[in-house]
């Protein structure tokens, strides 16, 4: 068992990691519909691209076995086991802040609904940096500001792939503070650090089945009417306000290429500076 050493780590262990480990199977049964922005991002990657899915959950973005190959990871062993059924992709157990994916190698990375679970601003920026560091470096030959991870650290091979000069790109997706039309009703001005319940049904889930909303909602299936025997788990979230994700990316040494809002979430596509 990991032995957390800082208050933030301990907090996340209790209020994020343990919860996902316990609810993995139920959580997974409610996570099946890909978000359109993510799907489009994946489908526009050139054939043969190598990707990383950081915080892959049940592997909902590893279902597509078309033209890219991904190494997914999740902090929850139970979710990683579920995700690992998605051949030919690979899945491992890893923490976003200590990834075993080599730096400077991947053509793309996705990090969907993960970074909002980190409990301090510094850790969120660090997580963005960890994701961006995996990407192939932009290779404008004149650039002298590239870091220590360039060619010497990753000898010729895996970096060689696709030919564009911008380097790899990452899509990051976080839950938005501004979602007054969602059933949670949060909006500008609300506390950004919140605890969100997940009700683990002990009994049959008959009302849920036909009731799923379209669009791969973040919370469909949870927090329905609580019945006897049900168990409620609280998960920590940092709700992102407008512009905050872009700011985190810049602080992490990235450049925002595109960003927007989709269904209660902020998203951004970024590359290394």
């Amino acid at each position: 068992m990991p032995n957390p050493s800082t208050p933030a780590q301990t907090y996340e262990t209790n209020h994020v990691h343990t919860v996902y480990e316990e609810i993995a199977s139920h959580f997974s049964s409610t996570r099946y519909k890909p978000w359109p922005i993510v799907q489009t991002f994946l489908q526009t990657q050139p054939q043969g691209s190598i990707g990383a899915d950081i915080g892959c959950g049940n592997g909902k973005y590893l279902r597509d076995k078309s033209q890219v190959w991904m190494v997914g990871c999740d902090r929850s062993t139970n979710l990683a086991k579920i995700a690992s059924k998605n051949e030919p992709h690979s899945v491992i157990v890893a923490d976003t802040l200590a990834l075993p994916h080599p730096n400077g190698v991947f053509d793309f990375a996705i990090c969907i609904a993960v970074i909002h679970h980190l409990s301090t601003a510094a850790r969120r920026v660090e997580a963005v940096k960890c994701v961006l560091d995996l990407l192939r470096r932009p290779c404008s030959s004149s650039s002298s500001s590239t870091s220590i991870f360039t060619s010497s650290a990753t000898p010729s091979g895996p970096g060689g792939g696709g030919g564009d000069d911008e380097g790899g790109k990452a899509l990051i997706y976080v839950w938005a503070l501004e979602q007054k039309d969602s059933r949670r009703g949060w909006d500008e001005g609300h506390e950004q650090d919140v605890m969100v319940p997940w009700v683990l049904k002990q009994k049959k889930e008959k009302q849920e089945k036909g009731r799923r909303k379209k669009g791969g909602d973040e919370e469909v299936g949870a927090e329905e009417t609580k019945q006897e025997g049900d168990k409620t788990f609280l998960r920590y979230y940092h709700l992102y306000r407008k512009g905050e994700l872009e700011s985190d990316i810049e602080q992490a040494g990235g450049v925002v290429l595109e960003s927007g809002y989709e269904k209660d979430n902020w998203w951004a596509i970024a590359r290394l500076r």
Binding site: P2, S5, D95
Partner: peptide, 11 residues
């Protein structure tokens, strides 16, 4: 499934 979680003192 390979597990890359580190003990606290190594993070």
């Amino acid at each position: 499934v390979a597990n890359f979680l580190l003990p606290g003192h190594l993070v």
